[in-house]
Design a protein around this nucleic acid. Structure first.
Lengths: 354, 354
DNA sequence: CTGAAAGCGCTTACAG
DNA sequence: CTGAAAGCGCTTACAG
């Protein structure tokens, strides 16, 4: 038992402002002022400042963030909700957000919504009870109501990557329509005339935009929109669903010579499927996928991909939210920022010759 | 100006316990008890409970985490420091930590140390002032002192993946020595006799272990340890450094027939280099890399890789820290958990015939 | 130049 | 069964 006592005595206990104040026989006001760099404006003597700072260091003082936040109503923290932190796109986005926030003296708390409205609601609640100064969200499907509610709060909100067109909210996203349109144009320029696509079913706006851009791309060139070639999977990850749709496309009469994959994992899935089946890319089937990756770069046939400006997405999102946090922009005002993508042309979209 | 007033009036302001108490004309004690599920043990009437809960919902009450934390000294939050959240290994690890923490009702705050001791110190300070209940760290180089200091605190700490052998601290890591040893054995079994390696210079313990396991693997089979074949890069990411070392190895007299790459990005770099130079894998050079990835699976020659049990790493780390947070394990006690890796044999380590 | 005191929103020992 | 009050560690308006 006395051994136990020993153990606790060995551990440094946290130092508070008043510990410093007592040790120096001054008020906590003074200590607080000095440690917060407000000594100058309160004309506190140089000597006192040094004494306080020295003692703070000696006692290993760390300010208590909870107490400060409770008092000031500011936490200097941003909440970020992504679909899945283990998805490279969001991992990079998170990193970009973290770096940019850092420049503004803000920390970031991440959460994965898992493409799940309930988890998203839970995260929003948590971010609210932790008094985040601002919240950045890559919105999951069916969370429009949640965002709308959040907007009635005084917490600044920015949507990134995913968004809802009818909501009056700050947002930063990629021009998905144009990106898909360009992908079609590229394939057309390579001589392809029968072009298919795999997308994701559901009412996720940015994915709808990709489909729209794709279809308009076909129309612009007078090409056929064939329902046997334009297919959708319902889930986010099931490989079996991807191969099912690929089989449908491949077995359709007069199958397409090129395919547009509307999301990175669809591109990866297609690559894997073709590899397993011995289908040659691009000779048997040319492909263009959304969202570049190391895998596409180093694949047996390097894959032509639509590269998203992930860092810029993250940076802009932070900038928008910070402007509101700092009160530079009225909370009710909203801005929409759209960024252009870039097509990285590699071998997989090689030319088609009849 | 009156327009401005309007705007603020429209925004819901936060509800506190006492708002509910006032609305119901009861004490905050009562409200707190009910909302924290302690109604039963205080024998508060069923009717009262329902009234309180209804009002809380009506007023959209969200508990203030800062106030609660300040009062109780608990934040129900874990801090996690990784080298880089955009690195897939750490992204997956973070996800695993997040999921496991969730099971224990804990949230996770992430931070990237960037392999940088100063950023690491900064993060530790932040996690301390935010009163994290526990801290999980994948330690960067030269942060041994920081961890040691942190251990004198009452905050439970667990190291994951990276660690310092001399510190008495909970840790969860992979058996790096054995993994590398096995990699050599595999190459030997494929007929390779001249085997090289690329590692990272510096005193990072787990990387030293990989080198040790590699060298002992060679010794165990009576193979040559040739300094022209065993090379190191200093930085973490520079492709030029990797190609420099590869060039050295390839141009050495009697060059090796197989190569062990001690980290994922070295494997990727080697792959890229060989691809650019038209060196065939495994015919001209067989390879085994640490740390599996999608890229390795789908590469032109799929790459044999040492797969780490990332999810288990994350899960175990959380379990260890939670045991201390919940007071089930004495803080000064420490446990070391080592997990086995698995070799995923693919084409890149194909047989060597003389 | 410096200090006493209030208050942020909670929880909880104590009292009845 | 319910309430008054203290206190967690800060910041800041006010007073001198």
């Amino acid at each position: 038992m006395s051994g136990l006592g020993q153990i606790f005595l060995e551990m440094k206990k946290k130092t508070s402002l008043s510990d410093i104040a007592k040790a120096l026989d001054v008020s906590t006001t003074l200590v607080s002022l000095v440690l917060n760099g407000k000594a100058k404006e309160h004309r506190i003597s140089q000597r006192m400042c040094e004494k306080v700072k020295a003692k703070a260091k000696e006692l290993n003082y760390v300010p208590n963030h909870l107490a400060r936040g409770l008092r000031t109503g500011k936490t200097n923290t941003l909440g970020l909700i992504v679909a899945d932190i283990a998805n490279p796109f969001f991992a990079k986005l998170s990193r970009a957000v973290e770096d940019e926030a850092d420049k503004h003296g803000l920390k970031v708390i991440f959460g994965s919504s898992d493409e799940n409205a309930e988890k998203s609601a839970e995260l929003i609640r948590i971010f609210q009870d932790r008094q985040m100064d601002g919240i950045i969200v890559a919105a999951a499907e069916k969370t429009e109501d949640q965002i709308e509610e959040l907007l009635e709060t005084k917490t600044p909100v920015v949507l990134v990557d995913r968004y809802f067109p009818d909501l009056n909210v700050d947002l930063v996203a990629v021009d998905n329509y144009q990106a898909s349109f360009n992908a079609v144009e590229h394939l057309v320029s390579q001589g392809h005339k029968r072009i298919g696509m795999i997308g994701i079913r559901g009412d996720i706006y940015h994915l709808q935009k990709r489909e729209e851009g794709f279809r308009d791309g076909l129309k612009a060139h007078g090409l056929e929109e064939n329902d046997d070639w334009i297919r959708f999977t319902s889930s986010w990850k099931e490989f079996s669903e991807i191969s099912e749709q690929l089989e449908h496309i491949l077995s359709s009469p007069e199958r397409p010579t090129a395919l547009f994959l509307a999301k990175n994992h669809l591109g990866v899935g297609a690559l894997e499927y073709f590899q397993n089946k011995g289908i040659r890319v691009p000779e048997d089937m040319a492909i263009v996928s959304f969202d570049d990756s190391e895998t596409f770069r180093l694949a047996s046939t390097p894959v032509t991909a639509v590269e998203q400006p992930i860092e810029q997405l993250g940076r802009e999102a932070v900038k928008l939210v910070v402007e509101k946090v700092k009160g530079k922009v009225e909370n009710k005002e909203y801005r929409e920022v759209f960024l252009q993508t870039q097509m990285l042309v590699r071998e997989s979209s090689g030319p088609h010759e009849d």
